[in-house]
Design a binder for these strands. Structure first.
Lengths: 155, 155
DNA sequence: CAGAACTCCACTGAATCTGTCGCGAGTATG
DNA sequence: CATACTCGCGACAGATTCAGTGGAGTTCTG
């Protein structure tokens, strides 16, 4: 399947950073850009998009910056990926959220490709719609602590 | 996730057609192109690629054409998609078959994105590596007979 | 008001996708 | 051998998308 775009990768990385910073006030684009090594202007664009979807909110002026609009437990990865990449399904005609008839096959119901890709979509959605930002960060921390041998720490 | 390319869609359609024709001698590019409405020259290119991977074989001259190189039961969709699209994983660093370190994250083992996308990859692979061409065609036929047998809603 | 920070829109260079063109090469048949 | 029939192969081109840049503008705090 095709790679996730940089935009999505950066989005996720930025959101993880915001998750770790949740409850501690807004974070500067500048800061996110540096800690996550994301081109600043590109990140700006991305955060703007995320804001458009209501995932984060921003504050202008001194003391401003970006913060998650909801607790990280409530933000699932599925919607985030959908925002940046479009439907999860490998084909529009296999999408649940944004179905679009494909002009190729005369009959969608009996199209073998569609049937299979619908299953793929469901598999992907099951994973992404059941992991929250908080959970993803927790797993990363878990992996880190397992690696270093040190006990875990909570979010 | 990003859409399947036309190339992959056409590949699958062509392979389904060859599956249905399996054991009945070679099929002409011309014929495949017409019945599946795929641009002929493009299809030619695609079949050549598939041949390169050993999935089909061809015969030139009169009475020539293309045919599956193996029984359709033995050809899984996973490898086909991998041939045309590259790794199934949404990120190279989450790929099993073609792992490639991503330059972004300093530590692959504790990268949250990678951990999640590895799960996505596994989910996709589970679906695609367990459905053969034969099985996919069977399901489509099943859907077709169910449709004609039990009256359902028309589009 | 000054300055910090986000907002918005346009633009560009590179890559990839989706084909198309033309001729060449191999094979069967009479 | 001649001929018709098929695939083989390399180059090329238009459209679209990606990834990133630039610059002017707006809003908020002190």
């Amino acid at each position: 399947m095709r790679q996730l775009s940089k935009k999505t990768q950066y989005s996720l990385r930025a959101l993880y950073a915001l998750t770790r910073h949740y409850g501690k006030g807004p974070t500067l684009i500048q800061e996110l850009s540096e800690t996550e090594t994301i081109p600043k202007k590109f990140l700006e664009q991305i955060l703007l998009t995320l804001k458009g979807f209501g995932l984060v909110h921003s504050k202008k002026g001194k003391g401003g910056g970006y913060a998650l609009a909801q607790p990280p437990k409530l933000i699932m990865l599925g919607p985030v990926v959908r925002m940046m990449e479009g439907p999860l399904a490998p084909l529009p005609c296999a999408s649940e959220t944004r179905y679009k008839k494909c002009d190729e096959c005369p009959d969608a119901e009996t199209c073998a490709t569609r049937i299979v890709m619908k299953e793929v979509r469901d598999a992907i959605a099951t994973v992404l719609d059941n992991i929250s930002l908080a959970e993803a960060c927790r797993r990363a921390d878990e992996a880190a602590s397992k690696k270093s041998g040190a006990p875990s720490y909570e979010i």
